[in-house]
Amino acid sequence: MLIPCPLCGPRDALEFRFVDETVRRPEPQSASPEQWRSYLYLRANRAGAVTELWLHRSGCRQYVVVERDSLTNTVTAARLARKEAVS
């Protein structure tokens, strides 16, 4: 599986570390236990198109938002996380 790192170009997935699905962090001051634990534990775990956070650990060390098909492992896009709209 190749991930097209926006800085380094296409690289083997072994250079990256899968971090998590992209999930929104609730406001810690006001989150209810259910909301916070949903953030901690519940995942969509979709079969098909997924949006995930990866880290180009053995490369540029940038967090990358990866669009991937979890059925085929085909990566369709990868963007720098720091350039994403704040979620």
């Binding site: 570390r17 971090v19 962090r25 956070l53 880290l55 650990r57 060390r61 940038q62 967090y63 720098l80 996380a81 720091r82 994403e84 704040v86």
Partner: peptide, 13 residues
């Protein structure tokens, strides 16, 4: 290290 960069790159840019 990963954790620090994650805060800086994804939460508190």
């Amino acid at each position: 290290h990963d954790w620090m960069e994650r805060w800086l790159q994804t939460q508190r840019r």
